[in-house]
């Protein structure tokens, strides 16, 4: 993949941004046992598998209320 080697400097911040979203969502999932629907395992799979969209869907629809 020459393309990757050539543009890694441009791709790096992109990957970091995706990663920050994913990690924030994962931390939240582990800290909170209550979800509006779904289970912990389901949300982990969604957040890890679907880059960007997974964390958005979790925070908008899945996140339970703070106590």
């Amino acid at each position: 993949m020459d393309v990757l080697r050539e543009y890694w400097l441009f791709l790096l911040p992109l990957i970091i941004a995706q990663f920050v979203l994913m990690i924030t969502a994962l931390v939240h999932i582990f800290k909170h046992p209550d979800y509006r629907f779904g289970s912990r395992a389901m949300w982990i799979v969604i957040v890890v598998l679907f880059q960007m969209v997974g964390p958005i869907v979790y925070f908008v629809f899945g996140r339970g209320e703070d106590h």
Binding site: Y7, F10, L11, P13, L14, A17, Q18, V20, L21, T24, H28, M52, P55, I56, F59, V60, R63
Partner: peptide, 21 residues
């Protein structure tokens, strides 16, 4: 506190960098 800011800033940052790439 409700991650709204984080989501929007992250998404638009990702878009901003993805478009030219």
């Amino acid at each position: 506190r409700t991650y709204k800011l984080l989501i929007l800033l992250a998404v638009f940052t990702i878009f901003g960098m993805t478009n030219p790439l």
